[in-house]
Nucleic acid binder design. Structure first.
Lengths: 146, 146
DNA sequence: TATTGTTATACTCTATAACTATA
DNA sequence: TATAGTTATAGAGTATAACAATA
């Protein structure tokens, strides 16, 4: 009964194609703010008022901890984030946005929020349907395969 | 009349979220084949039997030509692609997959074709609808804004 | 002993600028 | 003079291994 997945495969193929199309513009978008794509991603992952442990960041980025040290060094030296010793576990360091970091994060989010033309051109019905389906996709994450 | 775009904005926001979720797994997927993400992308962009000029590759990747030289060096030294002098314009070099390159490209594509669980769990109706909408999105690309 | 983050090292990715060969 | 690709160089991203401080 393996042919059940054929539509999921096709959807995935199209999503990948769309990803790669969109991806090309990301480095130059980040560069508008003198950020690298990776730095831009980190800035987005640290939410205002929600300190994030460095180890947790490494996990989310699926990269080595030593890599996070460098990323954080550069963002910290630009005054966008701050390392703070954790009170519970003194081995840990948590990351916080500085006021400048909060502002830049919001500016980038604003710049990034404008959808590509090709999405805007969908009919209203399609747009609503797409939103509904994508919500399902993102909700499905935590559930078990059963 | 600016609120017309609100659904497109929401869809775009969800798509971005999905991108970033999926993106984390890409480097390790490429690493299964001892490829970097960028090398993997290049391998995908060169289609079997369809020589591609280096300049065109740089354009598609939105990166500098000097960067392509290095990428191609590494893939060529692994015997996956080949530089060939263009017959029309002797300044140009076109890229071709070697037989090993064709095989690896197919293996990677096969590995990449398996959709994430969260997509497979959509209902059949939603899957079909998603395919239809994404086809529209990708078709819209070339049209003018009017 | 195990874990968190850092340092040292090495390789890849990326851009800029200067260069070579062709057009 | 302009274009396609290369080289030299430098900074950023990435992983591995060895290390310090803390648990």
């Amino acid at each position: 009964m393996k042919s059940t997945n054929s539509d999921a495969c096709e959807a995935w193929k199209l999503l990948l194609k769309f990803f790669f199309t969109q991806r090309a513009g990301f480095p130059s978008l980040a560069a508008e703010f003198e950020l690298s794509p990776a730095q831009c991603h980190v800035l987005h992952l640290i939410e205002p008022g929600r300190p994030l442990a460095m180890g947790h960041l490494a996990e989310t980025l699926s990269c080595d901890a030593s890599n996070v040290t460098g990323l954080v060094d550069r963002l910290e030296s630009r005054g966008l984030i701050r390392r703070q010793a954790s009170s519970e576990d003194r081995r840990q360091k948590v990351l916080e946005l500085t006021p400048a970091g909060v502002r830049l994060r919001a500016t980038v989010a604003e710049r990034l929020s404008n959808p590509p033309e090709t999405l805007k051109r969908l009919s209203e019905t399609e747009q609503k349907m797409l939103v509904k389906i994508l919500r399902h996709v993102l909700q499905n994450k935590a559930e078990t395969t059963k």
